[in-house]
Design a protein around this nucleic acid. Structure first.
Length: 754
DNA sequence: GACCTGCTGCGGGATG
């Protein structure tokens, strides 16, 4: 490469240019060309978006390091990554270049020894690679020396920006960045790296609230890949237990366990589902011989399919090629699977949850299987991005849907309308159009506000209410929607819960409960994890299991793809002792589905109206689609808003879960008992008629919006985030509503109908 | 309500 071919190249520090020559790069990537001049100005926030990891990190670091060398060789760049594994990867990538430039690189997360951390604190310069949680710990514990640590901070680089948008952890990150700027009394330039973002302005709003107009957007133009799709349908006989709608039944039946037989077959009228076995057989045939990822949607199903696929290998006397990967498996078992994927001598396929959806390097993957509809279009896109990573290789998606055979028993509307097939097809058609769910930016995340209050008190050794409000809730601060009145209400509630106390001058300090919370390292994470049992076999920990159901000695469970029998349970130490056994049921993970977006539901409806048959459906899947359409036609459901079913009325809204839940709340507020159910709302008539429901919808569409306190007055079980338990009932309702209720969409529907 | 992510600094004692 020469300077004449690339203007951007010549702008870089000479030593970095030499490094690029010595690495024999043929050319800078398009994102790098564009990012270099923007970042080198040293005063523009930048978002770099490209599909794969190809060169995004370099697009940020080459100019950032050049800038550092020219402006302040003792300056500091902070890189924030969501995963420890990612920080380790980036450390290896940066080490060589930075050694050449004589710039130190500091990896910093929970597994890094404290001697490295204290060395950095003594000489805070170079590149710091850190997690949000470790950054939180630094702010909390190093209050008096923070000015020194951040005094020469030049850039903050945020990797996998899209992972943070719209979550508790993202709110925490915004707050940390804001607190650092307050310490420095100056703007810190932010650089975000991300997979393709649907709406760049939302990402900018997240990364730089209140100063979005100055953000430079850099999007790769080389992101298009060929996409091959096949969706296979499987029909579950009427007399068997059908996934996924009956997963809860499975779990409840799995509780009674003294018998030796597989408990799911104890019920004489129901046989275990046969579709999973058929799907496993198909996967065994098409996946063997190459590297692939298989995504069922739950940890229980990861165990189920791993078990079936490993049995098939055994039965056919071939070496095992199938490995499980999910968040409850121990680090050792997970890295075993990761190693199997990375090595190139033997083919390997992982059956996994979203653990392998994130950006850890697992080598190249030929195809991705999705069993049952994906949780969202965004997650389907992310999963698919793991295949075809080499140039000229297509992305390959193999989908599997299961529908119940029409039998004698009363089928539900969901069965008749073949909702699984419709939802999966809708997701694929939106994926092809490059649409995916936008992140929700308006969540209040008041749970995280509590954490940040406790952390700010720790940082300063106590703080008065006024400056605290100024820090966290004023204009441009991360919780700027909170009024002074709400804030005081929150503080007084935190006092009642003994999270806070005030000294005689009014200074806010940690209360008795607050003290014990902040003194445990679990304080630093903004999100919570459920209590879990360790599973131990012969002295080796296999992993952890969130046990919410009763467990008994002698029970069989599936874990890490194998069957175990429970030998002993230590409730105090939270340990389950097991040994190998044969036959078993999936572990009792409780689960439903994620939340479906309105756009997906409307595409499902459009699919019912259309007569096109997508070419990627196999004959069985086409049969499901034809059945759904003929039922839709026979029942004259086009344009229908209500189905009168005797005791209840079904409202056919075809809206997303947030809108349906909001409409249910509104109906409840007006005295009508309603519950959101998939694309519909079930209304109990209780003697009234469809007309009276329409009247209420009319009232809803013509009234002012009732406040959230009244709407959620009867709602229980709405605590979702880590410190939600410490919110007053009113603030808890506000926080919940901001995340899970779409009132405008609900009212819009009521207006159309009434 | 799918799934996932993450987590201190110190002081004492042993060792080189």
């Amino acid at each position: 490469m020469t300077g004449t071919q690339s203007n951007s190249f010549s702008l870089l520090d000479k030593r970095i240019q030499q490094y690029i020559w010595s690495e024999k790069w043929e050319a800078l990537r398009d994102t790098q060309e564009l990012a270099i001049p923007a970042i080198l100005t040293g005063n523009i926030d930048t978002i770099i978006s490209a599909a794969t990891a190809a060169g995004k990190t370099e697009a940020a670091f080459l100019p950032a390091l050049s800038y550092l060398l020219s402006v302040d060789p003792n300056g500091l760049i902070i890189y924030i990554g969501p995963l420890k594994a990612l920080i380790n990867d980036q450390f290896l990538r940066l080490e060589k270049l930075c050694a050449l430039l004589e710039i130190p690189v500091w990896p910093w997360h929970g597994d890094i020894s404290s001697s490295i951390k204290s060395k950095f604190r003594k000489n805070p310069k170079g590149v710091l690679l850190i997690t949000p949680e470790s950054l939180e710990a630094t702010l909390f514990n190093q209050g008096s020396s923070l000015n020194g640590i951040f005094s020469r901070l030049l850039f903050v680089i945020i990797d996998e920006l899209h992972i943070f948008i719209g979550s508790e952890r993202g709110k925490q990150l915004q707050s940390l960045l804001h607190r650092i700027e307050v310490i420095r009394s100056k703007r810190i330039i932010r650089i975000g790296l991300s997979a393709t973002l649907g709406d760049m302005s939302l990402a900018a709003e997240f990364m730089c609230p209140n100063r979005t107009d100055a953000v430079a957007f850099i999007e790769s133009k080389n992101d298009t890949k060929d996409l091959l799709i096949k969706v296979r349908g499987f029909e579950e006989p009427a007399h068997t237990i059908c996934k996924p709608s009956s997963s809860l039944t499975n779990i409840i039946e799995a509780v009674d366990i003294d018998a030796d037989v597989d408990v799911t077959s104890k019920n004489t009228s129901k046989q275990p589902a046969i579709a999973p076995a058929q799907i496993a057989t198909d996967l065994f045939d098409v996946m063997r011989g190459s590297n692939n990822l298989i995504f069922p949607n739950s940890r229980a199903d990861v165990e189920l399919f791993t078990n079936k696929l490993q049995e098939l290998c055994e039965f056919n006397k071939v070496p095992n090629e199938f490995w499980p990967h999910h968040g409850n498996l121990s680090k050792e078992l997970r890295s075993e699977t990761e190693e199997a994927l990375k090595q190139t001598e033997h083919p390997a396929t992982a059956i996994c949850t979203s653990t392998l959806e994130l950006g850890i390097d697992i080598g190249s993957v030929k195809s991705v299987a999705q069993i049952y509809p994906p949780p969202s279009v965004a997650s389907l896109k992310q999963r698919l991005g793991r295949s075809g990573r080499r140039d000229n290789e297509p992305e390959i998606l193999r989908g599997y849907v299961v529908e119940k055979e029409f039998g004698n028993d009363n089928p539900s509307l969901a069965d008749d309308l073949r909702l699984s097939t419709l939802e999966f097809t809708a997701c694929i058609s939106l994926l092809i159009e490059k649409w995916f769910e936008p992140p929700v930016l308006n969540g209040l995340h008041l749970s995280t506000l509590i954490q940040q209050i406790l952390s700010a008190i720790g940082q300063d050794g106590g703080i008065y209410a006024g400056p605290l409000y100024q820090l966290l809730c004023s204009n441009g601060a991360p919780f700027s929607g909170i009024t002074k009145c709400d804030f005081l209400d929150l503080l007084s509630n935190l006092g009642k819960k003994e999270l806070l106390m005030q000294d005689s001058s009014g200074l806010l300090l940690h209360g008795r409960v607050g003290e014990s919370i902040v003194n445990h390292f679990s304080f630093y994470a903004a999100f919570s994890s459920p209590a879990e049992f360790r599973i131990v076999a012969g002295g080796t920990t296999l992993g952890t299991l969130p046990v919410k159901m009763m467990l008994k000695k002698g029970q069989r469970i599936l874990f890490a793809g194998r069957t175990w029998s429970v030998e002993d349970i230590d409730d105090d130490k939270k340990v389950i002792f097991v040994q190998r056994a044969r036959g078993g049921v999936p572990p009792a993970f409780i689960g439903g589905r994620g939340r479906v977006h309105t756009k997906v539901r409307q595409r499902m409806y459009e699919l019912l109206l259309s007569e096109d048959t997508p070419s990627y459906l196999d004959n069985m899947a086409i049969k499901f689609l034809v059945q759904a359409r003929s039922f839709f036609k026979k029942k004259e459901l086009e344009g229908a808003k209500f189905i009168d079913q005797g005791e209840q009325v079904t409202l056919l809204t075809w809206l997303g879960d947030n809108a349906n839940e909001a409409l249910s709340c509104l109906l409840g507020f007006h005295g009508i008992s309603a519950i959101a159910s998939g694309p519909t709302i079930e209304v109990q008539k209780r003697g009234s008629s469809v007309d009276s429901v329409i009247k209420v919808l009319h009232v809803i569409s013509h009234s002012d919006l009732p406040n959230v306190d009244l709407l959620l007055a009867d709602a229980s079980n709405i605590e979702r985030e880590k410190w939600d338990w410490a919110l007053s009932p009113g603030m808890l309702r506000q926080s919940y509503a901001s995340l899970y209720l779409d009132l405008p969409e609900a009212i819009d529907w009521a207006t159309q109908v009434a």
